[in-house]
Design a protein around this nucleic acid. Structure first.
Lengths: 208, 208, 208, 208
DNA sequence: TATGAATGAGCTTTCATTCAT
DNA sequence: CATGAATGAAAGCTCATTCAT
């Protein structure tokens, strides 16, 4: 006998995926419930059945999005690596995750446009508090003890910097490409960017 | 004395300011023409009289926004400074401009959400092509010749990095503050961020 | 018993009737969607739900209008009648159909004002191509063979003439009445007109 | 010294022409005051200065239109011609006037859509009462006396018939062409129509 | 669980018209 | 005589949301 509950769960997941794409493409204000329903090929009413309101749906999408990146981060096992390699791995990971998940960047922008008021309502996200900062702190400390990293580095600042170097480039790829008249998304350009980022970060953390 | 009413230019400028604030606060999809009209205390119809459509108004706002930052950049006179100081000035300027113009960040995000299709329609913006990259190239070269900068630095990558370091922090201030449970907008936090940025950038461009 | 509410087809038909009256009374440009909604006592949004746009609604009304007259024409069974009688029946039918369906005349005028661009978009109407011309051709030929009709009559010209004799009188009843200071819509006047039309047409087709 | 008044008059005439074209093309409801102003290349405010309201402008256009056709009719000098020829000339004139003035047909349709309420407000038009009916009555009587026309013909009915035969064909040229899949506006088609009309009318008035 | 039908509020846009010079 | 600036009202249309089954 077929488990009914699985169907329900599958519908919900499908709705979340469709909604994520819609919100990422059009923002919260520009997203259309009709279009989401059409994307999932499910009745619009069903979306309301599961998620009650557009804003709630957006919140659910955000929660899912954060859960996804946290899961990915957990696969990194940075503590198993030598400090310098760990930093490099983190930089590469951040870059490629953003690159492969443009919807993450867009959703983050949207969340911030609305001053993160959705985030704040979500205990789940706040509790999902990235353990990365702590891990990063341990790595930096280990590197300092080993004499290869300089001291006094704030792990949060470093994390924000790594993210920022990747984020700005990818988030603004359209305007930057237009204004500088240079396609920033060719494989070569992407490679150059990653190399530049690694140089910058390595140069900062490594002892002279 | 200039007449307050029936001044076409004055009305247009006032509309642009109100629209800029509205778009920055709510995004393109979330912005309301009614609210813009109320902000300017002018008849809604007048907005259409001058700007025809919401999208055109958004484009006009973007053009104005870019013109503003270009004007500010021109005041920097980086070429008059010693290379190391010039880089520092640029970093500080970028930081404080973004800090003092949160609407700039928001509008940029919105423009990118829509894949810069508005930007592309504007010859004015494309021609407004930032001369900063060229200036930055000259500074880097001068520093290299003087033996204080390392060689092989792509000015565009460096510019994007400086911007990214400031942008990500400020653009995502709400989500970051929420997730890390730490107010990133206190004077101290802001000062620390700028210091960190300068360290990072200086460490990258300066010869060991 | 059929449910009165939540009957999609019923709603659509009711909307079409209300829209037909509104378009006939005010033309395409003068028709108001609000007024149509009020006529049907249905939510305005529902009209858009089924017909998407005002122009599409007008097209649907036109299609329905043409279908109606084609249906009526089919009831005539002209081929069963003697040629002379058939011509008379057609004349009378045309006259009374126009007389009883003033909305038909008005809608036709509106369609032509817009250069039939709606008609052209409708495959349904173009395929609904009046079989009357062919029937009329057969009747004329039969009459000619029987020696009572003159030869060389173009059925299309004759059809247009019959229609025109009725149409102009009824379409312009207001201006004609005003200008000639004579009420053209009294029963007597209407009877005289029909008699005149029959005389004219009979005189034309019959052998001297 | 240049007479100022001529300019004013010229502007008014230009506005009337532009308005006539606009009303003919879009109907009363679809006509746009802005578009009329653009057609004349005069300020919209000036139109209001001279004609006060859209409806009044439409009325002025109607008056002018009627005056024009009455003028043309006066050039016919039908009473100078032999009765049979006079009827033929009238038929030809009606046909070619409608053919060359499609705006006349359209404006007439619009006037009737609004139930001639504009016409009724205009004493000028009502007084402009076509003398053609009287003339036509004289011609018919003359022909009857000469033994070439049958008696008992109502000049108004005949006039309406002549007009209707031309009007319907030309007014509905778009729908008829579309539905019958036959271009009714080629020179050949137009010639055939006129010939048919003359046959019909001659056949009716002439003694067997 | 799932859906087509229906709605009220509000959105962008339009339009005839008036103001001030 | 002529005009650019400004407006209130209303139009077409959209949208999130709910109803009934």
């Amino acid at each position: 006998m077929k488990p009914r509950l699985r169907d329900a769960d599958r519908s919900q997941q499908a709705i979340l995926v469709a909604a994520r794409d819609e919100f990422a493409q059009y923002g919260l204000g520009g997203a259309r419930m009709d279009r989401i329903a059409e994307r999932v090929k499910l009745n619009k009413r069903l979306i309301y059945y599961y998620f009650a309101r557009k804003e709630d749906l957006f919140l659910a999408v955000l929660e899912r999005t954060y859960a996804d990146i946290r899961d990915a981060e957990k696969q990194l096992h940075l503590t198993d690596l030598a400090p310098a390699l760990a930093i490099r791995r983190l930089t590469e990971f951040t870059w490629s995750y953003y690159l492969q998940h443009p919807e993450f960047i867009s959703l983050l922008n949207t969340a911030n446009l609305h001053q993160a008021k959705h985030l704040m309502k979500s205990d789940r996200i706040r509790d999902m508090n990235s353990p990365l900062i702590e891990t990063l702190g341990q790595i930096l400390e280990r590197g300092r003890v080993e004499g290869i990293f300089r001291g006094g580095i704030d792990p949060l600042q470093l994390y924000v910097s790594i993210a920022g170097l990747a984020y700005f480039y990818l988030s603004n790829k359209h305007t930057l490409s237009t204004i500088f008249g240079r396609n920033l998304m060719t494989p070569e350009a992407l490679g150059e960017r990653l190399a530049h980022m690694c140089d910058l970060i390595q140069g900062y953390v490594l002892m002279d």
